[in-house]
Simulated assay, not measured.
Amino acid sequence: MPRIKLTLAYDGTDYSGFQLQPRDRTVQGELERALGRIFDQPPRVHGSGRTDSGVHAMGQVAHFDCPDDKAHVPWQRSLNSLLPDDVCVLKAEVVDDDFHSRFSARGKVYEYVLWTKYEFCLPHRRRFVWDCGPVDFDAMEEAAQVLLGEHDFSAFQNVGTVVNSTVRTITEISRHPGVNEHEVVWRFKANSFLKQMVRNLMGCLVACGRGRLGPDDVRRILASKDRSEAPPTAPPQGLTLISVFYPDYL
C-alpha cells in the first residue's frame, strides 16, 4: 500500500488541536472525514505531533496508507476540494514505506508572534498574536541564551503526555520582524519539544521582557525541573508550527 505524505497548513482557532478527540473538532478528524469521501473505509491519518487547541500550522506533516488503485489520485487538489477553508494541503507526495510522520522526524521549528502595542490590537490579527504589550527585547534575548543547548526541560512541560525523557536540545531561539511594526516573531528550533514547551518558554521570556525575571532566574527554573517554578503558559493563538525536519533534509 503506497504511503502518502501530506504537508498541511491550518488556522487552529476553531480546532481542539490536530489529534482526534471524541467529541471535538480536530484537524485529523477533518482529514479523515475528507478521505472517507474518497475511500470506502477511510485510512488512519498519522501526524508529526499534536498541536494544542488554538495553535496554527504552516508546515504540519501527516501520512496515511492507501490501496494501490488509489495511488495516483491527485491528493492535493482532491483533498483541498473536500476540506474546510481553514485547512489546506500544501503538498502531497508518495514516500517510502518506512517513513513515519512522527517517528522519522528529527526536528521542528515553531514561531510565536507577540503584539507589543498597548493601545490596540488589529482585529484581524487577534487570532494569530499574543497581545502582551511592550517588552524589553534585549532582556528576552539575554535570557534566551540560557535555554539554548541540551537541557532537561521538565520545568517547561505541562502535564498530559508520558515521555521517555524530558531532555531536549534547542538549537535556535531568535527574534524577527513581524508583518507590521507592532509585531515581533520569536523562532524556536529543536530536535523535539515537550507538551506545550514552546508556549511555556515564551511565557518565561515575556516575564523576562517585563522585568519580572532575569537570566539567573531562568537558570534556577531549569535546574528545578519543577513546572510550578516557571511562569504561566503563553496563550495558544500566537503559536504556529512552521516546519518539521526529516533525515533527508538535515
Rank of each mutant, 00 (worst) to 15 (best):
P2V: 02
R3G: 00
A9I: 13
D11I: 15
G12N: 03
T13S: 06
S16Y: 13
S16A: 12
G17F: 07
F18D: 09
T26I: 09
T26K: 00
T26Q: 04
V27P: 04
V27A: 08
G29K: 00
L31I: 10
L35W: 05
G36S: 07
R37I: 02
R37V: 03
I38Y: 04
F39L: 02
P42N: 13
P42G: 11
P42H: 13
G47H: 02
S48Q: 03
R50Q: 10
R50A: 08
T51A: 04
D52S: 06
V55T: 01
M58V: 10
G59A: 09
G59M: 07
V61A: 06
H63P: 00
F64R: 06
F64G: 09
P67M: 05
D69M: 07
A71G: 09
H72Q: 13
V73Q: 12
V73W: 14
W75H: 11
W75K: 11
Q76M: 10
S78W: 14
N80V: 04
S81E: 01
L82M: 10
D86C: 06
V89F: 09
V89D: 08
A92Y: 14
V94K: 14
V94E: 15
D96F: 03
D97P: 03
S101L: 07
R102H: 09
F103I: 07
Y112H: 05
L114S: 02
T116M: 12
K117D: 13
K117Q: 10
K117I: 12
F120W: 07
F120C: 01
C121H: 00
L122R: 05
L122Q: 11
P123Q: 05
R125I: 00
V129D: 07
V129M: 00
G133P: 06
P134R: 03
V135F: 10
A139G: 08
M140T: 07
E142H: 06
A143G: 06
A143C: 13
A144Q: 14
A144D: 14
Q145N: 03
E150T: 13
E150Q: 12
H151Q: 01
Q157Y: 02
Q157N: 06
Q157E: 15
T161K: 10
T166F: 04
V167L: 07
V167S: 11
R168G: 03
T171Y: 13
I173P: 15
R175T: 05
P177T: 00
P177E: 00
G178A: 05
G178D: 03
H182P: 00
V184A: 09
V185F: 05
V185E: 02
V185A: 08
K189E: 09
A190C: 08
N191P: 08
L194D: 12
Q196C: 04
M197A: 12
V198Q: 09
L201D: 01
L201Q: 14
C204P: 10
C204N: 15
L205E: 05
L205W: 15
V206M: 11
A207G: 07
C208F: 14
C208E: 15
G209R: 13
P215Y: 15
V218F: 15
R219W: 14
R220E: 12
R220H: 06
I221V: 06
I221Y: 15
A230F: 13
A230G: 10
A234G: 09
L239Y: 01
D248N: 05
L250D: 11
